[in-house]
Design a protein around this nucleic acid. Sequence first.
DNA 1: CGGGGAATGTTGACATCGTCAACATACACG
DNA 2: CGTGTATGTTGACGATGTCAACATTCCCCG
Lengths: 203, 203
Amino acid sequence: MAERVHAYHHGDLRAALVEAAAAMISEGGAASVTMRAIGGRLGVSRAAPYRHFPDKTALLVAVAVQGFDRLRLRLESLAGAGAPSRVDRLLRMGEEYVRFALEHPAHYRLMWGKEAIARQGEPELREAAGALLEHLAGIIESHQESGEIAPGDPRTRAYVAWSAVHGLASLLIEGQIDPNVDVDELTRQTTRTLLEGLRPSGR
Amino acid sequence: MAERVHAYHHGDLRAALVEAAAAMISEGGAASVTMRAIGGRLGVSRAAPYRHFPDKTALLVAVAVQGFDRLRLRLESLAGAGAPSRVDRLLRMGEEYVRFALEHPAHYRLMWGKEAIARQGEPELREAAGALLEHLAGIIESHQESGEIAPGDPRTRAYVAWSAVHGLASLLIEGQIDPNVDVDELTRQTTRTLLEGLRPSGR
DNA sequence: CGGGGAATGTTGACATCGTCAACATACACG
DNA sequence: CGTGTATGTTGACGATGTCAACATTCCCCG
């Protein structure tokens, strides 16, 4: 409708495959994502995806890349939001990271499921995750300049911050956290503890 | 030799299966662990495991449980070690956690691969992971009493600490961290930041 | 404008996998 | 000693990822 309706046979199947796979992962978990099922959903045969991806793995990598991109965009969009103090904006970013994971658990899991995904480095994935890290490092650097975070290699500090929020997201998603615990409170406490630890020691 | 050589047919096959599966995961990754391969390794047929586990999943759960148990024992054994100050002992525990994950990446991954493992709650797994958390919470509580960690629900603080070390381990294992980064230094910085954040705010 | 080659999609087939049912064997106990 | 049960084996089945051979559609060049 919007774009040309029928380019070649299907019209941008590659994108449709990624979208379909992502949707199916969210709906029925990773196990429900089978070449045949993806094809069926799009009215294509089981082997059609092989004209666009060498592997099932390659298709899943594309889905994971899309996940990292969306997560990064979401965090970036938060940077300009009308938040109170700069520090509060930082906290809110951490909370948003965790929220994303909780909203799309299966997708988030896939982004980290190297065993199920990567043959080896998979440069595309590294790049998408790298962009996320860069964004994080940038934020941290700006907060170092305004004195809210202790000086030191921003990249390293970014890894520390990333570890904290990813770890919490992972624990939550995998059901390792007592259901009675207040998730929002735990998230706030985690981000606050992190920020406290990153502060210049003098304060 | 040690135990009775041939109880029933094989002599404690159940344990042998778990051990073999764990070894194969470490050696060839999760994909190499197939019912047929496990059987072959032990000189048993492919269906033999079904007399001891209802599922392949159940077998993998047992392997994961073993992983959590070993990790916990390793951390517990560290508690009594002749470490310098109490704080240093805490830092060392965090480092040891990460070290375990780096030494057994595939095994550690399996411990967290819910999608590949759990149908649902899997009480055994919850229990093993729960024991780890309890140990962590105990340590934290004792450090609260000696004033090195701010008061507050020890369980919640334990989740925060767990998030930090698990997140870092996960990032490292999944290759998301620049190879040029000094792993030991990053680990130290992560644990130190965490501890700093957990300190009573007055100090 | 028409034909040919490349891009895209389909079908049939295969090896492998997890799993079940039917069968075989060895141990334990009366 | 014999019998039942625990343990192990074999054959088979459906599902899956993937490849090769074939079919169709699009695009571009003469």
